[in-house]
Design a protein around this nucleic acid. Structure first.
Length: 588
RNA sequence: GCUGCUAUGGCUCAGUCGGUAGAGCACGUCCUUGGUAAGGACGAGGUCACCAGUUCAAGUCUGGUUAGCAGCUCCA
């Protein structure tokens, strides 16, 4: 297969890179691993010299030199003892050799006499076959040995690599283009959000535009949820440590919580900001006894949460320490689980589809780790197997295509996570639907069934549009800042030809304003072309040009974003057109 | 949290060998009274992220802190 061939070329190139590093920086370099990846390859090194982009040209030059030597890639198989002897000065290789399963063939590859690496292969037979291979060093960064943060951090050199130089060019071009959509840049430039040193990491300020978009989303989500039979709650943003002890969060997630007071001093009150809404919303259920007739009880809340993420984890609006989420907890009878799960999934798909993000979403069935290292998960193996089997059946019944994520579950149950990738390809969870068969018991939540017995309900934890900050970030990236009319913070910008027409401009502004349209009037004494350019830069969907012709005929000249044509129409027709777009939430 | 990089007006960036700051855009005022992607003049705006240190002298050198970026790790 073509793809396999490219991956083999990339893999061989990683040996060439290692050989170049060896040639340039000597024999005391410790070598890690060097696999092929999607857009090229990387190699991990442990060395004194700290690499910077200034070193890239020399490394690329050395790689070119090695490639020009037409070296054979020669495979040799060794016994474990021979391999250990050969790599006795390479501690990472020794570790890899010792971890190989007994009986596994150990092979090494010689790149001429330049470099010899422990490697399973296969490889391109001779570097002359890599002559047309196009590559460019992308970046160098830190990476833990074997991906474990307890291990030493090595230097990882990422290289773009393709069989064809046009593919390489295209890859670099796409990366450059992606940068232009980056919400963390664009969102700041366009005035959606900002950050302030002395407020702190992960605590963005939503500026008027960002606030407006989130308000629009939030009102819409709350209205739809109401129509779906959800019950609104408003619960506190913090609680005493005792609440989190019941829920299990104190034991499982203390490090991730903002604690007010000394968590270890049991003689004093200690509060913590909420990292989730579950235990708060359960109190609504616990307020009084419930009959089976009352279920499902769909509790929802637009809920602000606080999570003390590690300092290096924050990213724009995607990973923050305070965020607001449309969080729901559905208390149900076991026989209602499938139907309610389906309802949650449909709701999420409706929201994501309408805002235009669903097409790029993937679904992940997040399961526990059966080994349950570090006691991360509550409950018994049997309980987990039941919960996961139930979820699998539901997903299969609903024809959901999903990946499985082992050790990605919540501590109380399996999840369906709806994932989205940012412009750099980094994936995060947008929406989650979780089955919880454990927590009701911890809280003593029961219902009285038709037979008069007290029974434990199941709980569905779910978000409907996920975290508003994160969703806003993805929307900025998806639309490159040019929001569809129904979501645009400013829908219309009025540009008058001169002061003489400001009276009429104001009249039009007022009419649009009264129709509920988000309108701005650019009153500066600038030429129309200049004002228009500003409107385009701000990515406003509608620019209205107003002058003598418009005033005398009671019309406006409409220039839509992305179009060079102008339409002359009455203000009423314009209002109708915009309100129609808002009502149907079209992607325009 | 880890590795590396970065920090000069709202934005993009100059600032040489250490001698207390500059441009363009944006903003304000005025002129221009205009027709579809930059009309003109003038003006205001900076404790050079913060705190120490070295020095006669620090935007510039050193250390620390904070924040931003990329990646790793983590993510209820």
């Amino acid at each position: 297969m073509e793809n396999e061939k490219v991956m083999m070329q990339r893999h061989t190139m990683s040996h060439v890179l290692a050989a170049a590093i060896k040639a340039l920086y000597g024999d005391d370099v410790l070598f890690g691993i060097g696999p092929a990846i999607d857009n090229g390859f990387y190699y991990d090194f442990d060395m004194e010299k700290v690499l910077t982009p200034d070193d890239f040209p020399a490394i690329e030059e050395k790689m070119k030199e090695i490639l020009s030597e037409n070296l054979d890639m020669v495979r040799k198989e060794l016994s474990k003892e021979e391999a250990l002897e050969m790599f006795k000065d390479q501690k990472y290789k020794v570790e890899l050799i010792n971890d190989l399963p007994a009986g596994e063939t150990i092979s090494v590859y010689y790149l001429g006499d330049r470099f010899c690496d422990l490697c399973r292969g296969p490889h391109i037979e001779n570097t002359k076959f890599l002559r047309g291979f196009a590559y460019k060093i992308n970046r160098v960064s830190g990476a833990y040995w074997r991906g474990n943060e307890k291990n030493k951090m090595m230097q990882r050199i990422y290289v773009y690599g393709f069989a064809d130089k046009n593919e390489l060019k295209e890859c670099i071009r796409l990366a450059e283009e992606a940068k232009l959509r980056d919400h963390n840049k664009l969102g700041r430039d366009l005035g959606y959000f900002t950050t302030v040193d002395y407020i702190g990491q992960g605590l963005p300020i939503l500026l008027p535009k960002g606030s407006r978009v989130i308000q629009l989303l939030q009102r819409w989500v709350e209205d739809v949820e109401f129509k779906k039979g959800c019950i609104l709650t408003k619960t506190p943003l913090l609680a005493k440590r005792e609440l989190y002890k019941i829920s299990g969060h104190w034991d499982h997630y203390l490090d991730g919580m903002f604690v007010l007071g000394d968590p270890d001093d049991e003689t004093k009150e200690c509060f913590a900001l909420r990292p989730m809404t579950c235990p708060f919303q359960y109190q609504v259920y616990l307020n009084k006894p419930h009959s089976y007739r009352e279920l499902p009880m769909r509790l929802t809340e637009t809920s602000t949460l606080f999570r003390n993420e590690d300092s290096g984890e924050m990213h724009g609006l995607i990973r923050v320490r305070q965020f607001t989420i449309s969080e729901g907890h559905y208390i149900l009878r076991p026989d209602q689980l499938e139907a309610e799960f389906k309802g949650c999934l449909e709701l999420a798909k409706y929201f994501l589809g309408t805002v235009g993000l669903l097409d790029k979403c993937t679904f992940r069935f997040s399961q526990w780790d059966p080994e349950n290292k570090n006691n991360k998960y509550e409950g018994t193996k049997e309980q987990w197997e039941v919960a996961q089997a139930t979820m699998k059946k539901i997903l299969d019944d609903l024809n959901v295509t999903y990946d499985i994520g082992i050790d990605e579950a919540a501590f109380y149950g399996p999840k369906l996570d709806i994932q989205y990738k940012n412009v750099y390809g980094k994936e995060d969870t947008l929406v989650t639907i979780q089955i919880d068969m454990l927590l009701a018991e911890r809280y003593g939540m029961y219902y009285v069934d038709s037979d008069g017995e007290k029974k434990l309900p199941y709980i569905l934890h779910r978000t409907s549009l996920g975290c508003y900050e994160r969703t806003l970030a993805y929307l900025i990236e998806e639309y490159a800042g040019a929001f569809p009319t129904w979501l645009a913070p400013t829908q219309v910008k009025i540009l008058s030809i001169s002061e003489k027409f400001e009276g009429y401009a104001k009249e039009v502004e007022q009419k649009l304003f009264e129709a509920g349209i988000r309108v701005e009037n650019d009153e500066r004494n600038e030429k129309i072309g200049y004002k228009l350019r500003q409107a385009i830069t701000e990515k406003v969907p509608y620019a209205l040009i107003i002058g003598e012709q418009e005033e005398s005929s009671g019309t406006v000249s409409v220039r839509n974003r992305g179009s060079k044509d102008t339409r002359v129409m009455t203000v009423d027709d314009l209002i109708k057109e915009i309100l129609d777009k808002v009502a149907t939430k079209v992607r325009d």
